[in-house]
């Protein structure tokens, strides 16, 4: 079973001067799964991404990617190992063209990078924007480009931080299709998402993070029925149902 796990955190902690953002998180992402990560605002989801991706180098504990410890590696090293992430707010390079945004994220020396980039841009129907600057795109388009960008290295695992937030329904549909598509090609996905319909639709298993701890895990229905989860969300923004995916 161990081989089946692509990412594992063991007792992962992160303290911000007395505030414990992560208090011993144990989480496993199975190869080729789409694993969901939910939890109330401020529960530590993004911090977890920051630590796992190497952006935040203050974490303690163990993070294994393909059985290799990666805590302490620089973000670019982690990326080149095949673990990519997107940001909660779009961080497309505003002064580079769409094509350049993708090319810079390809593996060095990859001769097929240009073809691959154009293929990805074509797939999400952004062809007429291929030479547009990042800053000239709509917010939703920027998010798509940011997502395409990390596909350039053919990652084994992608961490998506609320990829559909602020994206219009049409583009959102393209986005979720793309997630399914790359997952079908064998890429594992760990995704932070607030829309419970999407979680129910896409993710198995689901982890629930609350105040820096995993309080529940399992398939969506199990997690939803868990009293601790209800308690964690009680009185906060309860978003299940209502919104469309």
């Amino acid at each position: 079973m161990v081989d089946d796990i692509i990412l594992e955190t063991r007792g992962l902690r992160r303290d911000f001067g007395g505030v414990q953002a992560l208090r011993g998180v144990n989480l496993q992402v199975h190869r080729t799964s789409i694993t969901g990560l939910i939890g109330p605002n401020g529960s530590g989801k993004t911090t977890l991404f920051q630590v796992v991706s190497g952006m935040d180098r203050g974490g303690n504990g163990k993070v294994l990617f393909n059985d290799q410890p990666i805590l302490g590696l620089r973000p670019w090293q982690i990326y080149r190992l095949g673990l990519a992430r997107t940001f909660q707010l779009s961080r497309v390079f505003p002064g580079l063209t769409v094509l350049q945004n993708l090319l810079v994220a390809g593996r060095p020396g990859d001769r097929g990078a240009r073809k691959r980039a154009l293929g990805l841009i074509g797939r999400v129907k952004l062809c007429e924007h291929v030479n547009a600057l990042g800053s000239e795109l709509s917010y939703g388009q920027q998010r798509l480009v940011e997502f395409l960008r990390v596909l350039m290295c053919n990652p084994a695992l992608i961490l998506l931080d609320e990829p559909a937030a602020g994206v219009n329904p049409t583009l959102r549909h393209i986005l979720w299709e793309l997630v399914r598509h790359i997952n079908g090609l064998g890429t594992s996905v760990l995704i932070i998402e607030h829309n419970m319909n999407v979680i129910a639709d896409l993710c198995d298993p689901v982890y629930v993070l609350n105040e820096g701890e995993i309080i529940a895990q399992g398939d969506f229905d199990t997690v939803r029925a868990d009293p601790r989860v209800l308690e964690a969300y009680f009185g906060r923004t309860q978003r299940s149902g209502g919104t469309t995916s």
Partner: peptide, 24 residues
């Protein structure tokens, strides 16, 4: 070249550049 692209990516957003594999 790619090197130039990487330098420009550093100017645009160094954190994001590092996150897409640029040894900044």
């Amino acid at each position: 070249t790619r090197f130039g692209l990487e330098l420009q990516a550093i100017r645009e957003d160094e954190g994001a550049a590092e996150m897409v594999g640029v040894n900044t």
